[in-house]
């Protein structure tokens, strides 16, 4: 009998999980926030989302062709970058700028590093940082959708930074009907997405909870006008980009620590930087910068928080 047999190394069975299945589930988990964006910011939000996603995917395709890499636009990762970038800009951003940001995010934030898995920084945040540097005025003017038009409005965090008292209730902050980046305002929609990711096991609570917890603690201790321990921590964790950042960007597999302990340290680091920027920095918000800064520390954190080997002594942690 001379049957043709395949020889491979063990193991001979594999789990069904694939990169594209993970990525497309992340896309699905981002849909509630997209719906909320269109509900709060109207058609301009929809156009931004479409523009960012389409240009991200096309840029990915072009890069992979030019760089002679296998074309893997079907894996959904560029779609995520497009979505996240769109969610991180104001509804009033001209479409061409958004497209430029998207191209930058994929080309410079991801493909230059070697493509999916090799990038150090979250590509969407690289795109956003690029837009902030290039078009600060457009990136910091926020709107809401009223009677078929965008109406300029300050974000609650900006109001606070100016020393005012924001006229929003916790309920509004939770539902998302106020000025801000289009995908960040609805805590409800973001939490629905987060639940999907938790259920699928693609994220764990380590990063988000340590991140949000640190911000709550810091803003409670230092954020109040009436002295220590008087800050409105609930306002701080419900507003701005914290929920979007903590659940969807700080948890990005590629750019966050691989070990659970490292993820907790990463979350705490993000939380500290975000709080410091919000309370004492020049800008009203600090989520995206803090994540970008912490991205750079990931290799260090991974090394520091190696898991304990079976039978290994020592380990201070």
């Amino acid at each position: 009998m001379s049957k043709q047999l395949v020889i491979t190394s063990s193991p001979h069975i594999r789990d069904k999980e694939t990169i594209s299945r993970i990525m497309w589930w992340v896309v699905i988990s981002l849909i509630p926030a997209g719906i909320s964006a269109v509900w709060v910011f109207g058609l301009p939000a929809l156009y931004l989302i479409v523009a960012c996603v389409v240009s991200a995917v096309l840029t990915e395709l072009a890069c992979q062709k030019v760089m002679g890499r296998p074309v893997r636009i079907g894996d959904g990762s560029a779609v995520i970058t497009g979505l996240l970038l769109a969610y991180n800009v104001s509804a009033g951003l001209p479409l061409w700028m958004a497209v430029l940001g998207s191209v930058f995010a994929i080309a410079i934030g991801k493909q230059v590093f070697g493509g999916l898995g090799r990038n150090i920084f979250n590509p969407a945040l690289v795109g956003r940082a690029f837009l902030m540097a290039s078009f600060p005025a457009y990136m910091t003017r926020f709107y809401v959708w009223k009677d078929g038009a965008l109406v300029s409005q300050a974000t609650p965090l900006t109001v606070v930074k100016m020393g005012g008292v924001p006229a929003v209730t916790y309920k509004t902050l939770f539902l998302g009907n106020y000025a801000g980046c289009i995908g960040e305002t609805s805590v409800l929609a973001l939490l629905i997405g987060a639940l999907i990711l938790l259920w699928r096991g693609y994220i764990s609570l380590h990063t988000p909870l340590s991140y949000i917890g640190t911000v709550a603690l810091m803003t409670w201790i230092f954020g109040g006008k009436a002295g220590w321990f008087s800050g409105d921590w609930l306002f701080h964790i419900l507003s701005g980009g914290l929920m979007l950042g903590a659940w969807f960007m700080a948890t990005d597999m590629v750019t966050s620590p691989i070990t659970k302990k490292g993820q907790v340290a990463f979350g705490i680091g993000c939380g500290l930087i975000t709080s410091i920027l919000r309370l004492w920095g020049g800008l009203p918000e600090g989520v995206s910068y803090s994540i970008l800064i912490m991205n750079a520390f990931v290799p260090y954190l991974d090394n520091l928080f190696r898991p304990r080997r079976l039978g290994e002594r020592r380990r201070w942690i």
Binding site: V6, T8, P11, H12, I13, R14, E17, I19, I22, R72, G114, G115, L116, G117, R118, Y202, M253, V254, S256, I258, T259, K260, D302, R306, P307, R308, R309, L310, E312
Partner: peptide, 25 residues
């Protein structure tokens, strides 16, 4: 059985690290 020899870049999902019975990376 699985026998494809195609593979992709590590996306650092951590699944292997979390489950390695020896606590390796």
């Amino acid at each position: 059985t699985y026998y494809s020899d195609e593979w992709e870049c590590c996306i650092r999902c951590g699944r292997c690290v979390d489950r390695c019975p020896m606590g390796l990376m």
